[in-house]
Amino acid sequence: MSGKRKKIVAFLCNWCTYTAADLAGTSRLKYEPDIRILRVMCSSRVDPVFILKALMDGADGVLVGGCELGDCHYQRGNYYARRKVAVAKKIAADMGLDPERIRLSWISASDGPRFAEVVNEFTREIEEKGDTPVKHEAYV
């Protein structure tokens, strides 16, 4: 909408990071508004294709959030998720996209402040990078 804002898509697992985002809200923590949160049940639901598609559709950044390792509601989902994100990042890096536009964070349900911090940090990094070239190259 407002041109200066970046588009950051976040896939957050229901049990931890999404809950942390809720908590950041109930605690009235303020953070940058560029992020758009999508709920998935587990970080392992995030298909590397989603990440790459987001980038190709013009997202300036993609955040994947899950429970701390060992705390996944489904036991081990986030370990698999980490490999999936690694694949997306590697492909991005090798294919001329910027892998640093993809971020994987483990944020526990009780850590609202950490969520706000990660969002701010990531938004700042993306702002420093500027608009994704995809936007100007025409959506590809």
Partner: peptide, 29 residues
């Protein structure tokens, strides 16, 4: 909507590049 928003028009088909990136996620390993 995309067309309205895009600064430089749309490169078609939209998923041409994504196909290769996506295929890599499936069989790159």
């Amino acid at each position: 909507k995309r067309l309205e928003q895009s600064a430089a028009g749309l490169r078609l088909p939209l998923d041409r590049l994504l196909f290769h990136l996506g295929r890599l996620t499936h069989m790159g390993a």
